[in-house]
């Protein structure tokens, strides 16, 4: 059992390594993708600097918390797209019958699919988050929590993408649902949760789980709360388990395809 898990993890690591090697085929494009993604993210700092000059606090957040929010969102998004980029285009594989290559291998179909692509620009997102965290609110304990919440955030985003992508097993042209859900989550995760009330707040915590992926982790990093910490970890495990269950339920309905294709 332990050997099987070790072998599976080794294959996942190799897969990610080969993905990054593919992204590095053109060194210039690879480096510029990363650098420009970091610059693109940094541009938003200006907007918040101006806003905080006008008001000392927005939705209970100061500049430090906002930077933590941005850093965690960027790093979580980055990590999810470095390791599991294919989860975000799962619908395409299902609709075009491209899961065959993964189904004939003696490894977990889901992990093989998820780790079969990486996005070079996401390395920029991941690094940007780390840099922002270190520049604006560094402490050893906070860095540890930041890295841990980057993992939980990445898993929540990936699980959400998997749940939305798996809809394609049942419904034709459902891919837009997935795209919208993930994009909505990213958009809302860059604003302080204190500005949302009532239904909006409910939606952000229970339907599009920005609260669990970003808001609560930021609260825990600012002022440690064990209960909140455990809820975030528990929710991540729950959502991932739900995503795995739905994917494998859907896989029984997979109808393959006869398109000519190459593994790019």
């Amino acid at each position: 059992m332990l050997t099987a898990v070790k072998n599976q993890l080794w294959v996942c690591l190799l897969s990610v390594k080969y993905n990054i090697m593919r992204e590095m085929t053109n060194r210039f494009t690879f480096v510029t993708n990363i650098v420009f993604m970091m610059l693109n993210n940094a541009a938003f700092i200006v907007q918040w600097v101006i806003l905080f000059k006008m008001r000392g606090e927005i939705g209970g957040y100061t500049m430090r918390e906002i930077m933590l929010l941005w850093g965690l969102t960027a790093s979580s998004y980055g990590l999810s797209h470095i390791l599991f980029a294919r989860a975000f285009t799962l619908h395409e594989l299902i609709v075009n019958g491209k899961l065959d290559a993964y189904l004939v291998l003696p490894k977990s179909v889901l992990l093989s699919v998820m780790t079969s692509a990486s996005e070079a620009s996401s390395i920029g997102d991941f690094l940007y988050g780390l840099v922002v965290m270190c520049l604006f609110c560094f402490s050893v304990g906070r860095l540890f929590l930041f890295l841990l919440f980057t993992v939980t955030g990445a898993l929540i985003m990936t699980a959400l993408a998997l749940l939305a992508g798996s809809l394609s097993f049942w419904f034709v042209r459902s891919e837009m649902v997935g795209v919208h859900v993930v994009n909505t989550m990213i958009s809302f995760s860059t604003y302080p949760d204190g500005i949302f009330h009532g239904t909006a707040r409910f939606l952000l915590y229970f339907v599009i789980p920005v609260g669990m992926a970003v808001y609560w982790p930021v609260h825990v990093m600012v002022s440690f709360d064990l209960a909140m910490f455990l809820k975030v970890v528990g929710y991540t495990v729950f959502l991932m388990a739900a995503a795995v269950y739905v994917f494998y339920r859907g896989l029984k309905r997979y109808s393959s395809g006869n398109l000519m294709e190459a593994r790019m």
């Binding site: 072998n7 090697m21 291998l105």
Partner: peptide, 26 residues
């Protein structure tokens, strides 16, 4: 072997592909 569907990673060499398949089959 599916004649119309490739299993190999096109950006890798056959050697690297075989090493990867070796790892997949433990």
């Amino acid at each position: 072997v599916f004649g119309q569907k490739e299993q190999l990673w096109t950006h890798l060499t056959p050697y690297d592909n075989f090493r990867f398949f070796g790892a997949i089959y433990d």
